[in-house]
């Protein structure tokens, strides 16, 4: 979702993404027998500050610009790389999550790490901090795109359907007394409407009314259903149940009137504001109820008022 906290997503991604997915795979390497003096042109031309030393497929060391400078100071430019390289090399494996690499960069202060294939031990790439940032950004962009696509597809659905009359029905089952999951339908409906591209104000009104209606089903009945019909110019949400019914509808509509049990009140609901909230949030509300049979609540929301 666009409203998700981006930082949290980056953190998640740093666990999901593997080093192998973000590393640079074209690696410039040198052989142990190359002259140190030859490194000067290599470093300059490729703007590198160090490079892995490889014999065959095997990583045998790493040589940095600092090693080069020391060599220069000692006047030993003809010395082979083998004599001046660091042999004990800190490496990363391609199947490690990026977050490991980030920790390693933090701890070691190195600019880059050679990346090995865990099975073969072969050098398969090199990883810098820049690679990590590029990889994360790319992935975030893809994520963002996917949500955009959902959004686009859904918001054009009415244009793409050819019919004299179109409506989409979404059905949600609501379990009574299941306080923990109460509101799950309203939550799902809210998310769907947002993908369908409805105006935030409309979504908010539908969400509030649907949530209150769902809460009534949870508190007062064994089970019920929420049915949302989405039309090109309005949304209708029906909350139906086969619960005990409302004996005096007029009284139930009075703000503050409530028959909710104490446990519900202590949870922050049942203060008798639900139906008046629904009335306030919707453009039309029709409440029908038969004692012993159940309740049928219809809420209409016009998209263009």
């Amino acid at each position: 979702m666009g409203k998700d906290d981006g930082f949290g997503r980056v953190q998640e991604l740093s666990y999901e993404l593997k080093v192998g997915e973000v590393m640079t795979t074209t690696v410039i390497t040198v052989a142990p027998d190359n002259r140190v003096g030859d490194l000067r042109e290599l470093f300059r031309a490729n703007k590198m500050s160090g490079t892995p030393v490889v014999a065959g497929d095997r990583l045998v060391g790493i040589i940095s610009i600092e090693d080069f400078i020391k060599c220069l100071a000692d006047g030993e430019m003809d010395c082979p790389v083998r004599m001046r390289m660091t042999e004990k090399v800190e490496v990363l494996y391609a199947d490690e999550p990026v977050v490991h690499a980030i920790h390693k960069f933090d701890r070691r202060g190195f600019g880059r790490f050679p990346v090995l294939d865990r099975k073969t031990g072969h050098l398969v790439g090199i990883l810098s901090k820049g690679d990590i940032i590029k990889g994360l950004l790319k992935k975030l962009e893809i994520d963002y795109h996917e949500e955009e696509i959902h959004h686009y597809r859904a918001s054009h659905i009415f244009e793409d359907i050819l019919a004299d009359k179109t409506a989409i029905r979404l059905k949600y089952d609501v379990r009574g007394k299941d306080f923990e999951n109460a509101g799950a339908s309203a939550s799902a409906l809210k998310k769907t409407l947002s993908r369908l591209g409805f105006h935030p104000q409309v979504i908010r009104r539908v969400a509030i009314a649907t949530y209150e209606a769902e809460m009534n089903i949870v508190v007062f009945t064994p089970k019920g259903q929420m049915l949302a019909d989405i039309h090109p110019d309005h949304i209708e949400v029906k909350a139906v149940d086969k619960g005990p019914g409302i004996p005096d509808i007029e009284r139930a509509l009075v703000p503050g009137f409530s028959t909710a049990p104490e446990w519900v009140r202590e949870l922050g609901f049942g203060a008798g504001m639900g139906l008046s909230n629904i009335q306030k949030s919707s453009d039309k509300m029709v409440l029908k109820s038969k004692v012993g049979k159940g309740t049928d609540l219809r809420m209409t929301f016009f998209l263009y008022r």
């Binding site: 509101g183 939550s187 908010r204």
Partner: peptide, 16 residues
């Protein structure tokens, strides 16, 4: 709020 049940979060979600 003084309430800590999951419906507080649900409510928060509904009204952003």
């Amino acid at each position: 709020t003084g309430l800590t049940n999951p419906q507080v979060v649900r409510t928060a979600e509904m009204v952003d």
